[in-house]
Design a protein around this nucleic acid. Structure first.
Lengths: 214, 214
DNA sequence: GTCTATAGCAGGATAGAC
DNA sequence: GTCTATCCTGCTATAGAC
C-alpha cells in the first residue's frame, strides 16, 4: 500500500465519513459512497471486506486520530499555563475542542458521528471510549479536581465533567436551535459568543464563581 | 375508526416508535415493525400510506402529546409555587422532565427519538419545535428572565436555556458513560443523584449562586 | 489494485381476495 | 380492516477479467 493520501482507500474513508456523519450508517449505501469517491463499488470490499468494517475503520483511522489532535492541542495549552485556575483550564478546553485544529465543517461531522454512536452504540464505542473519552476525563480530573475538594465523591465530579461534554456536543446545533426557538436570525461572530457562553456556564456550573477568576 | 387503544393502528404506532427510537428510521424495516406489532405488512400502507409517513405520525400522535404531558406537569408545578425563585423553577423543570409522568423506559425512547431528529433533521422538526420547544422556552424565559437582568441580550439567555436542554438530553447516557469512563459500577438511586446534580449545575451555570437559594 | 457483471437477498409498496 | 401473494427496486457481496 502506498502512502499516497489521495489513493482509493483514503478517498473512500474520507467520503464514507462525511456521508455516515450526514445521514447515518443505514441511510448510506456502498454505491453512494463509491460514486462520491469516484471509484468502483467493489473497491469497498477489496479494501475493507464489508461496509460494517468500513464504518469501524472510519472511527479507527479518521475519527480517533482527529480527536487525539484536539486532545494534544488541549494538553499543549495546559502545559503552557502556570499556575492553573479552573478558568484557564476550561478556556483551554473550549479553545482546543471548538476552535482548535479543526475547521467548522470537520468539527460538525466529527460531532455528528459521535452523537450517533452515543445514541445508538455499536462495537466501536468501546474503542473510542478507551482511546479518547477516558484520557480526556483523566486529564480534566487531574487539573480541575484540586480546585473542587467539596466534590466529596468521584461520581459528583464525573457528572460535572459529563455535563460540560454534553454542552460541547450540542454546540453544533445551538445556532439552528436558537433560530427555531426564538425565530430570530443571528449574525456572524456567533461562534466566539458561543465559546464565551460555554466557558462562563461551565465554570459557574462547576461552582467556580469568583474562584481564581481573572 | 374505533377509539380502541389496542387496535392495529395504535399497535403499529407504539411498536414503530420503540423500534425507531432504538435503531433509527433506516435500520428498521416495515416487516420488522409489523412482525413485532403482530399484524400484516400491508397494514402499514393501509393506515399510514408509507413508512415515511408512519415515522411522522409517530411524532405527531405519540411524541408531541407525550412531550406536552411533561410540559403540563411542569406548568402545573410552576403555578403552585409562589413566590418563584430560580431554584424552584429549575427544580420543577427537572422534576417534570426527568421524574414526571413518564417511566424511565418511555423517557429513554423519547430522548433517543429527538436526539436523532436534532442530529439529522427531517420535516417533523419544524412541527416539533413549534409545538414543544418554543412553548417551553417561552415559559422558562417568563419565569427565569426577571432574576437575570444581567443577561442584557436575548441570545445570551437563550444559550443558557439551550445548555440546560443539552444536559437534559444527555441525561439518558450519564450512567453508561460514567461506567465507560471511570470503569466503575453504580448502584440505584442514581437518578435522584442525577437530578440533584442537574439542578445544582444548571443553577450555578445560570449564575444563580446564592440567589434566592433555599 | 481496479474494473464489469451478476448472484442472491431484503427492502417498500400494491393488487385483490376475504 | 386485514390478509396473501407478488412486483420491482436497490442493497451487499463476490467471482473473475484485466
Amino acid at each position: 500500500m502506498t502512502e499516497n493520501n489521495n489513493n482509493t482507500k483514503n478517498r473512500i474513508l474520507e467520503t464514507a465519513e462525511a456521508l455516515f456523519a450526514q445521514k447515518g450508517y443505514h441511510a448510506v449505501s456502498v454505491r453512494e459512497i463509491t460514486m462520491a469517491a469516484k471509484c468502483n463499488m467493489a473497491a469497498v470490499n477489496y479494501h475493507f471486506n464489508s461496509k460494517k468494517n468500513l464504518y469501524m475503520e472510519v472511527f479507527r483511522t479518521q475519527w480517533v486520530p482527529r480527536e487525539l489532535r484536539m486532545y494534544e492541542s488541549f494538553s499543549k495549552e495546559l502545559s503552557k499555563i502556570e499556575p492553573h485556575s479552573p478558568n484557564l483550564v476550561i478556556q483551554a478546553l473550549a479553545s482546543a475542542y471548538l476552535e482548535g485544529p479543526l475547521t467548522n465543517e470537520e468539527l460538525k461531522r466529527h460531532r455528528q458521528l459521535i452523537i450517533r454512536e452515543i445514541n445508538n452504540p455499536t462495537e466501536v464505542i468501546e474503542y473510542v471510549a478507551d482511546h479518547t473519552m477516558r484520557p480526556l476525563y483523566r486529564i480534566l480530573q487531574q487539573h480541575l479536581k484540586p480546585f473542587f475538594p467539596e466534590h466529596s465523591n468521584e461520581e459528583s465530579f464525573t457528572l460535572d465533567i459529563l455535563s460540560i461534554f454534553g454542552i460541547l456536543l450540542y454546540f453544533n446545533y445551538s445556532r439552528p436551535m436558537i433560530t427555531h426557538i426564538t425565530g430570530e436570525k443571528y449574525d456572524n461572530a456567533f461562534k466566539t459568543r458561543l465559546i464565551t457562553h460555554l466557558v462562563r456556564f461551565s465554570l459557574n456550573g462547576l461552582g467556580a464563581n469568583g474562584k481564581d477568576m481573572q
